[in-house]
Design a binder for these strands. Sequence first.
RNA 1: GGGCAGGUACCCAAGCGGCCAACGGGGCCAGACUGUAAAUCUGGUGGCGAAGCCUUCGGAGGUUCGAAUCCUCCCCUGCCCA
Length: 413
Amino acid sequence: MADVLETLKRRGFLQQMTDEASLSEILASGPTTFYVGFDATAPSLHAGSLVPIMAMAHLQRAGHRPIALLGTGTTLIGDPSGKTESRPLLSREEIARNKEGIRANLENFLALDGEKGLLLENGTWLEPLKYLDFLREIGRHFSVNRMLAAETYKIRLETGLSFLEFNYQVLQAYDFLVLYRDYGCRIQAGGDDQWGNMVAGTDLIRRVMGPGAKAEAMTFPLLTTASGAKMGKTEKGAVWLSAERFSPYDYYQFWINADDRDVRRFLLLFTFLPEEEVEALAALQGAEIRKAKETLAFEATRLLHGDEEAQKAREASRALFGGAGDASRAPTCILSPGEADQEMDLPALFVRAGLCKSRSEARRLILQGGAYLDGERVKDLEKKVDLSRLDPEKGILLRAGKKKYCRVIRAPE
RNA sequence: GGGCAGGUACCCAAGCGGCCAACGGGGCCAGACUGUAAAUCUGGUGGCGAAGCCUUCGGAGGUUCGAAUCCUCCCCUGCCCA
């Protein structure tokens, strides 16, 4: 069995470990069960969750058994760790809906068939808990003094921390105990903001299961891009993993627009390319780096959306930005025949294609010279576009600014 | 429950009766320069528009020719006290 911990370390996955020697020993001794928790706060995960997911995939490839734990119970509480304010409470219905989306995201990367990997939800054991029993059996192991001193709650102690949220850590620790006891899960992994919650879990296991109990925790770095933004967020919002919320083309573009300084790190984290290959790509200088970015984008898109979608996205990207490739793969807006028969002025067209939010915004765009029709800059606000004779294949290509494209075509009668 | 301080556009934050669609900064958008990078510079950043109009300053009422600005009630947040 290859030293997967070493691999993870070299590829930049590891931030903190409770006991590196012990972890290494556990992983080397044979197939091991480990878990990573995911909050069910949204109907899709976003790119920020990719680090843990990729780490899980590496471990699974090395023969270990991942448990993806969906926080259907803990999400009812809300994790205050490192947050400046509490989130609105989610209903059970929302959480149930979110769960399905997240499951689909995870299954793109991991086998969660119950054999090679498991998908569990902590609502299963948290929902039936009896308050008094829980306090007596689990609550007594927690020191309020220590929890209050924790760094993750520091901000919240100034701005307000409700008793509800204060319980989050206790519940997450309890999760680990349940998984340890009932599923033989010995390792918890997660983002570095989870460190406090994870260590609370290993402590609880030792206290409840006795000093011989060996449970470990490891965290992954919380990535920021070289320009300081949180990984997985763009100005327009999160980079979702669900194709419905964030198209494969947009996903591809997200990666290809990576900052130069991030390319090496991203290739190591978000692709399975061998390290030598990554180093070769990362060594490219100047404009050549675009080759490395194209590889990054293609591989990352392939992992999430599959080979076919990745190829389509690459075709579109090449066509729009390089002049080669098939432009019909570009994002497309289809007009009904009724719509197409009406003349539209330029602002209306840009709004209809979704490139601008309001007519005012479209007007600004056009006035400032950021609007293009089939590659030609257009500055005439009044210009009418005759859509009734659009070529049903090619349509007309709209561009807003440097990077946003939309092809408008007319639906067949 | 009592006392105090607050709630202004994506965020921070001015404004405290007309000159306010609301200073400034950040962010974001566009342009120039580039390599679909970074940095830099310029312009823009509620909506509809030709002028102009319409909707905004926690919510609802009120005073006034005129309110983000004054008054009343309510909601929310933080701090201190119970």
